[in-house]
């Protein structure tokens, strides 16, 4: 099964203020968008980030072929437990998801 990162144009993750992180999946085409929306369920993302599914905001933006997730950071940006000040590495976990 291919990894999501090989199918899409780009996955990026970034802080949305110190208390949230947001992940944008730029699918690049209607076909890939359809595939990704189906394969990447909110529950799968919740399991990946070890957070409750209810805490995740999901946006399926067909005009842009973008699937977006926003979730409260498990630790506040820059707190002692935070390993990733800008929330940059979360994208890697999404990129590595397998897609049917």
């Amino acid at each position: 099964m291919p990894e999501l990162g090989a199918l899409v144009e780009k996955v990026r993750s970034k802080n949305a203020g110190p208390f949230w992180v947001t992940i944008d999946i730029f699918c690049g085409s209607d076909t890939v968008f359809g595939q990704v929306v189906k394969a990447v369920s909110t529950d799968r993302v919740a399991a990946l980030f070890q957070c409750p599914a209810e805490s995740i905001k999901r946006f399926e933006i067909a005009d842009l072929n973008v699937l977006k997730f926003s979730l409260p950071r498990p630790v506040v940006q820059g707190s002692r437990q935070d390993c990733d000040m800008h929330g940059a590495a979360w994208a890697a976990l999404i990129s590595e998801l397998s897609v049917n």
């Binding site: 970034k14 802080n15 949305a16 203020g17 949230w20 947001t22 944008d24 730029f26 905001k57 946006f59 933006i61 005009d63 842009l64 973008v66 977006k68 926003s70």
Partner: peptide, 16 residues
């Protein structure tokens, strides 16, 4: 239109 509308995603919890 794509680069401009996509910028609403950037560092935003809600793109709308």
């Amino acid at each position: 239109p794509h680069t401009v509308s996509a910028h609403m995603l950037y560092e935003n919890t809600d793109p709308f």
